[in-house]
């Protein structure tokens, strides 16, 4: 019987009097691959941010791992999840290597893991390139490299396929499959269904800040 690693009950998140999420119920099991779909503004990014401890819960309850999703524990939650946003990562003026070194030192991860991660994502020739000089797809790969260094048990990926070409998409499918087989729980948002037949996600469609369909 697999463990529930994420749960939400009637989760509401307000921002400036607007309900980003209007009552979400969710259970995610260990090792599961979850895809959130829906139109723009449906609440996909907000849901991922909530689960990553990046947004406060206005009402309802939630749990990430063994940690309650409340103000007191949000920092602890953030340290234990891996996040890939769709707006890029880290500091624009620092190089790829400098950013990853900073992040690795912050979380006391081994610096020796950085180079292999960069090779895996295909950025080994961009180590000294400032992040602001990378393309959107390359910045996405930088974020993935960091996740490979960190190896969190929960991966939260916000529109990871955006700005990726076909080769990039294939690479990401392979990566998600690998980390899933290694036991990580992966949640991502996407506008389109996953193409790879080897990935069998649980798909939740969001609308109006709630989950309206599960497949």
């Amino acid at each position: 019987m697999t463990t529930t690693v994420l749960s939400l009950r009637n989760a509401v998140v307000m921002r400036n009097d607007f309900p980003l999420l209007s009552g979400v119920d969710l259970d995610v099991h260990e090792g599961e691959l979850v895809v959130f779909t829906g139109a723009n503004g449906a609440g996909k990014t907000s849901l991922l941010r909530l689960l990553g401890g990046l947004l406060p819960l206005t009402s309802g309850t939630g749990r990430v791992g063994n940690v309650a999703l409340d103000d007191e524990h949000r920092r602890a939650i953030r340290r234990n999840v891996g996040w890939l946003g769709h707006e890029g990562s880290f500091y624009q003026d620092l190089s790829v290597m400098e950013n990853l070194t900073f992040a690795a030192r912050a979380l006391e991860r081994p610096l020796v893991a950085i180079a292999p991660a960069l090779v895996r994502v295909g950025l080994q020739d961009r180590m000294d390139t400032p992040t602001k000089a990378l393309s959107a797809g390359q910045r996405r790969r930088l974020g993935l490299a960091w996740l490979l260094v960190r190896r969190p048990s929960i991966w939260l990926l916000d529109e990871p396929y955006a700005s990726l070409d076909d080769a990039g998409r294939a690479f990401l499918d392979e990566l998600i499959g690998d980390v899933g087989r290694a036991g990580a729980t992966v949640l991502l948002s996407a506008h389109d269904p996953l193409r790879s037949p080897e990935l069998t996600p649980t798909t939740y469609r969001l609308a109006g800040g709630r989950i309206v369909e599960r497949t």
Partner: peptide, 19 residues
């Protein structure tokens, strides 16, 4: 401003640095 550039805040927030 350096900390609040698009995407930077979130990717640094998940590092959970001691404030």
């Amino acid at each position: 401003g350096v900390e609040h550039a698009a995407g930077t805040r979130e990717s640094v927030a998940v590092l959970g640095l001691d404030p």
